[in-house]
C-alpha cells in the first residue's frame, strides 16, 4: 500500500510523516508540489510546515500547486487524504473541508504536548482508535483556531464530522474545541495537532499518534 507525502517549499514535517507511514506498515512515497504526478499512491498526507512561507494566508498558495489539482480530483472521488497542521489549512483553503484556521486567540505560537479525544472512528484515518479515546500528541502552530459560521458548526456537530477535540482548556480559541474534522464522505480528514511526531516514546510524548497510520493501512488493505 502506497501513501504519498507531499513536499511544498516550506514543508517541515514530510520526513516525520513518511517515517510514521512506514511505522504504520505502508510504503511512503514522496510527492513534489510541482509535479502533476501522484505516482499511483492509494492515499495522500499533506504534512505540517509553512508551505510557500504562509504568504497571503496559510495554505492559500499551496492550494494551486500542480500536485494539489490532482489530489483534489482524487479526494473528490474518495481517495483517503489527511492534512496535518499546515495540511489542514491547505484542505480548508481548497474547500475540501469547511471553515478556516485563524490566528491563535492569544496570538502566541504554541508548541506543547496536547491531549485530544478521538470522536469519530469511522474514517480511514481513525479506525484504529476507540470512540472517545484520549491521546497525547504535540500541538505546534500559530494559526490553529478553527472558525466557521454557526450553520456549518451545527452541521459538523450533527453529522459527527468532528473527529477530534482538545481535552481541557481551549488552547487556541477553536470553536467547540475542534482539533480535527472530516468531509461528508469521511475520506478527507484535517487535524491541527501532530500524530506523526508521536509514534514512539523515544522521540515523542507517546506512541499514540501511530493509530492514524495503522488506520490508513487497515483501510487500504480492506
Amino acid at each position: 500500500m502506497r501513501v504519498g507525502v507531499v513536499t511544498f517549499p516550506g514543508t517541515l514535517d514530510d520526513r516525520d510523516a513518511a517515517r510514521a507511514v512506514r511505522a504504520g506498515g505502508a510504503e511512503a512515497v514522496s510527492l513534489w508540489h510541482g509535479d502533476a504526478d501522484l505516482k499511483k499512491v492509494d492515499a495522500v498526507i499533506l504534512p505540517g510546515g509553512f508551505s510557500y512561507g504562509d504568504y497571503l494566508r496559510c495554505g492559500a498558495i499551496s492550494r494551486f500547486a500542480p500536485v494539489m489539482t490532482l489530489i483534489i480530483e482524487e479526494a473528490k472521488k474518495g481517495m483517503p487524504l489527511l492534512g496535518i497542521c499546515n495540511g489542514f489549512q491547505v484542505l480548508c483553503e481548497s474547500h475540501l473541508l469547511p471553515g478556516a484556521l485563524t490566528r491563535n486567540s492569544d496570538l502566541h505560537f504554541l508548541c506543547r504536548d496536547q491531549k485530544i479525544s478521538i470522536e469519530n472512528i469511522n474514517t480511514p484515518w481513525t479506525s484504529s482508535f476507540t470512540q472517545g479515546e484520549e491521546i497525547l500528541i504535540p500541538l505546534k502552530n500559530g494559526e490553529g483556531s478553527f472558525q466557521c459560521d454557526d450553520a456549518t458548526l451545527k452541521l459538523l456537530e450533527g453529522e459527527g464530522r468532528i473527529i477530534a477535540r482538545y481535552v481541557g482548556e481551549n488552547p487556541n480559541g477553536s470553536r467547540n474545541l475542534i482539533a480535527g474534522i472530516t468531509n461528508v464522505q469521511g475520506n478527507v480528514v484535517g487535524l491541527m495537532p501532530h500524530p506523526e511526531h508521536a509514534i514512539d516514546t523515544l522521540t515523542g510524548p507517546s506512541a499514540q499518534g501511530l493509530g492514524f497510520f495503522t488506520s490508513i493501512l487497515n483501510a487500504l488493505v480492506k
Binding site: 485563524t102 490566528r103 491563535n104 486567540s105 492569544d106 496570538l107 483556531s145 472558525q147 459560521d149 480559541g173
Partner: peptide
Amino acid sequence: MLKPEILDPQGNA
C-alpha cells in the same frame, strides 16, 4: 478585511 463576526486577535492586540 476579516468578516465582522470573526475574532481578530491582531486587531485586539
